[in-house]
Each structure stands twice: as C-alpha cells, then as structure tokens.
Design a binder for these strands. Sequence first.
DNA 1: CTTTAACCCTGGAGGC
DNA 2: TGCCTCCAGGGTTAAA
Length: 275
Amino acid sequence: MPELPEVETTRRGIDAVATGHTLTGMVVHESRMRWPIPKALPDLIKGQTVRACLRRGKYILIEFDTGTVLIHLGMSGSLRSVMQGELLRKHDHVEWLFKHATLRLHDPRRFGSVLWHPREQGPIEQHPLLAKLGIEPFDPAFNAKYLHDGLAGRSMSIKQALLAGDIVVGAGNIYASESLFRARIHPKTKASRVSLARCTRLALAIRETLTDALESGGSTLRDYVNATGEPGAYFTLHAAVYEREGQPCRVCATPIKRIVQGQRATYFCPSCQKV
DNA sequence: CTTTAACCCTGGAGGC
DNA sequence: TGCCTCCAGGGTTAAA
C-alpha cells in the first residue's frame, strides 16, 4: 500500500500525535519483520520525548535524544493512532504508547521493519539503508540535469532505473508507470538514452504525479491515520494506466498494455509513449 | 563496477 | 465448501 504519498501522509499524522510528547512504553507483539525488531529497543526509548517525525524516501524516522527509530512499511504496512480501548487486530505487531494516544504498526506480510540507530553512530543519513538513496523528488536540486546525469551510463530500462531509487526516491511501482505515461516515455526505453529534454518532462511528471497523489491521499488518509476502527482506507487513485490493461487510454483510446519488467508489472499506452 | 533474479510473508481473487 | 494458482503498492542480498 505505501508509496511515498502514503508514507508522507502517515508521517504527518504521527508527527501531530507524537512530536513533543513522552513515550510511556513500546510493546512488541511480533518481532519477526524484514529484520528482527531489536529486543532492547523498548527499554532504550521508554520515557524519552519524541523530538521530530521525519521521512527519507519511504522510511519514517522518529527522533529521540539518544537516537532514531527507523520504520519502513514494506508492501502491506500501516501505522496509525488508534482509539482508546480499540481491540488489537491480527497483524498488529508493534504499539507505541503515549499518555493521550497509541500508535499501532499493522503489517500482514511483515516486509516492513523497525530499527534503531543510536545517535553515537553518527547522523541518520549515514545509516546503511539510507546512505545510497537518491534525491528527494521535491528537493529543488532535483531537476532535468540531475536526472539526466543519474541516468547516464545505465543500460537498464527507464522504468527500472526509476524504481531502483538510487537516482530519485518516491516513484514506486504505481507512480513509475504513471509518471512515464505523463512524460510520454516508453517504459522500456534505455535509461541512458532518455534525452535531457525528456528528462525535463519526466522530472516534472514525477513531481506532479506525487503531488496529485499526496493531495488526494492526504484527504482520504486523514481518517486513516485517525481511524475510528474502520481499517484500510485506500488512495482514491485515478490511475491513467496502472491496472488498466486492455482499457482505453484516457488520451488516445488505444488499449493500455501490461508488461513485466524486473518481475514487476508495468502499464503503458503503446501509442502515447515512445521509445 | 552494473544488472538480474531469488527471496522475505500473508491474503485476496478467481478457476475448478 | 475446499484446494489450487496467481498476484500484490517494498527492498535487500547473492549471484552472474
């Protein structure tokens, strides 16, 4: 479920609930995630005040005085504040308790992770999982030249280069397809052969696609984060191509195609998008 | 160095 | 109803 817009919406939700407040406890119901949740973590952060809730790529960073909790939602994770007395659901793996609120991590597939980075190990940006991430799409430095330079010398397809996340983060499997449609670039185009002019369109398309999703996701996810018990509110995504195989392109009515690249589905319009 | 494929895990949908 | 196969928004890791 979580692409960058949903992660950012989640971050805003927990920021409003947690920042400036003291953690009264952390309960781990299931520690077997992508990596085991450190056993010592609850004792390390209990009683500390949350200084900030940040985001890097699809990682949520909860900062304390002695270090940072890194949270990734994987494919099926969600993190929300629950009502007082709300029953624990299956796959609710972790709870962070505050005097006035409880945050719960729910993740059926357990591809997500909860890790600890002690302050003495250096700045969080140098954490191995964050160090090689590409630029944030809303960083002013992310422009056509940056993208073009990043793609230079890479033989893989543009779709896979976007998905790799080491040039620019944020365009996951849905929005990589959607952004390429918006930029009218064929997903199989060799990354190194995307011209500077097309990089201008693509950088813009990525930002616009994510902005649109964030705006619609922000409204639907507001009650997701503050859920009153109703689980699983989704994005009201108005996809141009994603999961629209065989349906008419919204621009030219040509049937949308589905292909597989790197074991992931890609959708595109064979008429609008050129190699 | 870059690129590819296997893998981690559960659940929903659809065919029979 | 059950059992099977396929598919899913993520990313790390080992192998080529």
